[in-house]
Design a protein around this nucleic acid. Structure first.
Lengths: 334, 334
DNA sequence: GGCCTGATCTGCAACGATGTATGCCAACAG
DNA sequence: CTGTTGGCATACATCGTTGCAGATCAGGCC
């Protein structure tokens, strides 16, 4: 059926191994021989069978990427960047959607899927560090998204706390004093939610503004979560003059709900988010948010994972690089 | 290093082939033997080496998906649906981003990448039918997105023309008479742009409204394309009371630009799109658009491709199923 | 008892590539 | 003229799995 090296070898009148050598750029091959082989490859339309190569070499040149769902813009954009970074380094990416369910996440960590990849990029949402460590195999693993934080695991960090503080400070400087937070429970300490909440509270404290737990509204990190939470907040009668969505989806949902209810943004209520997804630039009004350094995150994560894959020495100290953030001030909170 | 069938066989005291038989659910195995093998698998933590299986069986159980970029919401959402559909049928999806460049698209069709997949789902943007046919190998191929249409190729169609006509008719019924179209040249005949434009013109004709070429503005199918085109339109002084973006990104970009310029939507100018991406529901005002049946498209495409992969008979008549659309009337054009 | 049938299990070869070891030959030194 | 070196090519084993073709054995039947 398919053309194999053997066919090429026969056509070129050389041994199979010589064809292999040509393909792998082995140094000592007579130009004439090489040309003959290349011609034969061209003529027969030979293509390397990557499956066979993988079996022989033990490497697949594929990275696994486990995330909740590509329909979530931040993940889609991150996935896009990750794929570009991986591609540039000669790796492909096999995406697996966990749907934010621990069973799926566990399956992705352990499952057969893994034997197809040389290593895994994982954005955990449902599993905690213990579970990840016990479920993970021996293959390289780099975490993203920091719902999980643990000194034993390689991961790429973002400046959740500092960035959230920067957003909050910006809102405070705009004269806002009653800043609602969407997407956390008031007690949250860990994970992106906890860290961002902590940044928020730190900024309030620094400005000498009292923290009101009633302004912290837990909800799903999705557009409708943000919309619902905002609706509840409005209905509850709690006063607020700004909304900080712990991610852009929440902020955009909030923005939508506020406008539907006839509130003026930013005049009455300012809105800010976190993630700087593309959509936020084109919202109306455009959304003030934090760019967490998505491209840098993708680059670092891919680089770190590939380094782990390609380095021989099994024992390496854990690395946790941190990406730089940037505040993007737009219309929703000028 | 890794545990192989051989290790399991030794541990269970059976032949390697029996282990293989157990794993593949071969019928005639004594329950006791089966149990012993399963226990050994469990104990040793054996996992099938999918690479070896692929080499032996000639199947990878992976589908390739070639699209421009995951950061484009419609593609991300479609990819998500495709992955779910494929997953449900025991296939994984390997995504390749073409960046809308013909070289990349060609490479994806021909490249080594292909040897990793059993078949390809392809959303062509740069290549035409001729190029696709000549570049494609022998592996099953199903097209999506219909920038290309050709009776020789399997593809999943959407009702571009009918849906665009429905949108236009809706705008006309809302009393609009000067409907600008973003994302096409007035002469376009083929592709999504041409078909949608044709639907637009058909609806105008049916309502007895004259077509003004000045209202048709070509631009990139992206948010900033829509924003720029709208800006140009406004600056040119051409009168219009509605904007039909040939996809949602264009419409959202237009919406943004209109609001920035202080135009009231929908009072002064109505806006409608095409795709029904998630974002459109939460835009402010929410966007009237057409849902092209994304989930159905994904399901059909995956099903068709897998059918091609698994059917023995090479010669099958070309199939071009068509997904049903639905008009979603929201605030931007009530 | 010998033969047949069907359940159960086994061994060998093969998928297509690459690593290792080695062979061959020309050129060159002694 | 022989021995050595180094460029170039080859044969063979191997990666982990599955298809194919048996081998083995118990029970049923004449």
């Amino acid at each position: 059926m398919a053309v194999t090296m053997n066919d090429v070898a026969r056509a070129a009148g050389v041994s199979l191994k010589t064809v292999s050598n040509v393909i792998n750029n082995y140094e000592f091959i007579r130009p004439a021989t090489k040309q003959r082989v290349l011609d034969a490859i061209d003529e027969l339309g030979y293509e390397t069978n990557l499956t066979a190569r993988s079996l022989r070499s033990g490497k697949t040149s594929m990275l696994g990427l486990v995330l909740a769902d590509l329909s979530i813009p931040y993940y889609a954009e991150l996935a896009s960047d990750i794929m570009k970074a991986a591609w540039a380094r000669g790796y492909r990416v096999l995406v697996e959607q966990s749907g934010n369910e621990s069973e799926h996440e566990k399956a992705a960590l352990q499952g057969q899927f893994r034997s197809l990849t040389d290593g895994l990029l994982f954005i955990p949402l449902a599993l905690d560090a213990e579970q990840i460590i016990s479920a993970a195999g021996k293959k390289p693993l780099v975490l993203l998204g920091e719902f999980v934080q643990d000194p034993r695991l390689d991961m790429v960090l973002i400046q959740n706390q500092e960035a959230a503080a920067a957003v909050t400070t910006h809102l405070l400087e705009g004269g806002r004093r009653r800043i609602a937070v969407l997407g956390a429970h008031d007690g949250d300490e860990a994970g992106s939610n906890g860290l961002r909440l902590r940044g928020y509270r730190a900024a309030l404290a620094a400005a000498g503004v009292a923290h009101d737990p009633a302004l912290v509204v837990p909800c799903d990190w999705r557009r409708d979560g943000g919309a619902d939470a905002t609706a509840r907040l409005l209905d509850s009668g709690v006063e607020f003059d700004a909304v900080f969505g712990l991610n852009d989806a929440l902020a955009l949902g909030a923005l939508h709900e506020l406008l539907v209810r006839g509130r003026k943004v930013p005049e009455e209520i300012a809105v800010a988010g976190f993630d700087d997804i593309d959509e936020s630039r084109f919202a109306s009004p455009s959304l003030t948010t934090v760019a967490p350094g998505r491209t840098e995150i993708a680059e670092r994560a891919v680089e770190l994972l590939i380094q782990r894959i390609e380095s021989k020495d099994a024992v390496a100290t854990v690395e946790q690089p941190e990406a730089a953030f940037e505040l993007r001030i737009r219309q929703s909170a000028p």
